[in-house]
Design a binder for these strands. Structure first.
Lengths: 340, 340
DNA sequence: CTGTTAGCGCTTTCAT
DNA sequence: ATGAAAGCGCTAACAG
């Protein structure tokens, strides 16, 4: 049954035409009116034989492979960053493309190899994705190959897709301000990181958004708890230390959901209730946000939409520059009006 | 600079040899001793020109593409299942292969298209991965194409990689029994699911392992709490209901970490402490397991190892049959000897 | 030891 | 309205 693969020549032969004509018909070439009969015969022959074009052969001629390369540092491994892949995959599928996924661990040598590997396969374009937005090293790439930076930036490749962190930062503050909170603490802010542009372009923007929104309303950071990591344990300790010094804090703004998780644990240990005693808003919409009790209100990192957008830009040769994707608020039970 | 791509002919010309010779040298063909000089000239020419073979052209001749297809239902999107991809990616890279990743959402139509898409690109083999182990629909595939089922099974393709659930189930019980627990409750068991082989081949095995280990030690399920979903909220409710009826339970065995998360929340609400009042062991080693306080002891689903194994089997034409991958225990603070 | 010829399956001039 | 021929870049047979 599954002997040799059906080739265009087979289809042409069965249809009683030349491969040339069959090719034109199957590809729906315009300006070349072959008879209706010919069309019918070719289509039915292709159908009957179960013909599928050999992309390698086609690619050899056309230089197009309907394949794109998705090269990431560690995206494939991390919880929500796989949303980037998912979105990209969907957009690729919608456009009839398929995606080569490679992971480099952020190692320049592997990045170079990854680029070579996808270039060898004549991909139609490359998406470079990073787990945390950063300036991303990119090896030399022929000009004919389109490149989009996803959650990352690179001077040589200006087309990039990033979350709209500034608006996201504003939004988080607004969620709290609308409830009437004035004494708000920020958990996860770190002045050193803020000014380390390489490490985190976008965090700086988020902070800028938060700061602007706070200033406009005359609110102040109650505290700037400097911590380095953003894991639950850091959130736990930061919250403990904060509450010790500022028992009157009304709301917490956490830089990510894991910190917020730690904050929940700390507040619970202190006998404080969310949101009755303290409201919490954070960023990411990590999976745990929905698991917490009460659910965590958070400004989502729109990974899936970003992945989708990146591939769309790649395939449409969209204009260069930054595309900012909106960070939507996901409202859950962790915010309420302050009691005092 | 980046004009036309360097071709084998260019290399041969520069080396003063025919393309054939250059090809043989570059591919390190045995039994064809070309002079050492020729080797040197070809290598240096290739180096100098930055030659890279065109895989499409090579694939056209050799029928090999150094590319494998990874088709999953929803793997790419879910937190820990992306471990499957990561492992597969690593094994592929180690073997000099590259991976096309497609997602089908479990929809047969999309599955058929995905298979067609990778077959059109002449992949050297296909891995079918599923989020939860199940009998997986697979469209017709030419016999020459290797297929490995990953966290899934299919009658037509006997080569599959699965977690060793039976041993994992035993292990979980042993962790508790070693501490001296005798009154152990199982959270997440559902008799209907247990017998629904299609929905969950492996859960049945896990239960079998648990049951066997319990029987050997003369332990009994304190309760079989039938619930359908395995989300934190389900764990919360199941634990609440359980503790109401069996205040003397010493340990909880949760079918996954999310259920355990819910159990933590419930116990906390009841003023009970983990592990002093109740020990908890669960399955998966989801990310939250490390986030919980105390850390959750859990029998891990070895996704990464499984992904790796699947690709290794695919590329080595390994023998057919089930490959069971060990589920290792990850010990954290949620277990201790019972107080009573 | 090395080169020539042919052809993988497809698309694309260019003739008819 | 259709087909013949050439060639994409590579490798496998077969001569020299």
């Amino acid at each position: 049954m599954a002997g040799k693969r059906v080739t265009l020549a087979d289809v042409a032969r069965l249809a009683g035409l030349s491969p040339t004509s069959a090719s034109m018909i199957l590809n729906g070439r315009p300006n070349t009116r072959l008879s209706q009969q010919a069309h019918d015969r070719v289509f039915s022959a292709a159908q009957q034989l179960g013909y599928r074009p050999n992309m390698a052969a086609r690619g050899l001629r056309t230089e197009k492979t309907l394949t794109i390369g998705f090269i990431s540092d560690v995206v494939a491994t991390t919880r929500f960053a796989s949303g980037l892949i998912k979105g990209a995959l969907q957009a690729a599928e919608d456009a009839g493309h398929v995606m080569l996924v490679l992971e480099t661990g952020g190692d320049p040598a592997r990045e170079a190899e990854a680029v070579a590997a996808v270039l060898d396969r004549q991909v139609d374009g490359i998406v470079f994705a990073s787990m945390r937005a950063r300036e991303f090293f990119v090896p030399e790439i022929p000009e004919s190959t389109g490149v989009v930076m996803l959650n990352a930036t690179n001077a040589r490749f200006p087309t990039s897709v990033l979350p709209d962190e500034q608006a996201g930062g504003r939004l988080a503050v607004e969620l709290l301000a609308e409830q009437g909170h004035r004494r708000i603490a920020l958990i996860g802010h770190n002045k050193e990181v803020e000014h380390d542009v390489f490490r985190s372009t976008t965090v700086a923007r988020r902070i800028a958004g938060i700061r602007a929104a706070m200033d406009e309303r005359g609110l102040d950071f109650i505290d700037e708890t400097s911590i380095w990591l953003w894991e639950p344990d850091d959130g736990f300790r930061a919250t403990m230390s904060l509450m010790e010094r500022h028992r009157d804090v009304q709301a917490l703004l956490c830089m990510n959901d894991r910190l917020a998780f730690g904050a929940y644990q700390a507040l619970s240990e202190l006998g404080l209730s969310v949101p009755d005693d303290v409201s919490i808003v954070s960023f990411d919409d990590d999976e745990i946000a929905a698991y917490l009790r009460p659910g965590l209100t958070t400004v989502a990192l729109p990974h899936q939409a970003m992945g989708r957008r990146a591939v769309e830009l790649l395939l449409s040769e969209g204009e260069a520059g930054e595309t900012l994707v909106e960070m939507p608020a996901v409202i859950r039970g962790s915010i309420a009006a302050p009691m005092s």
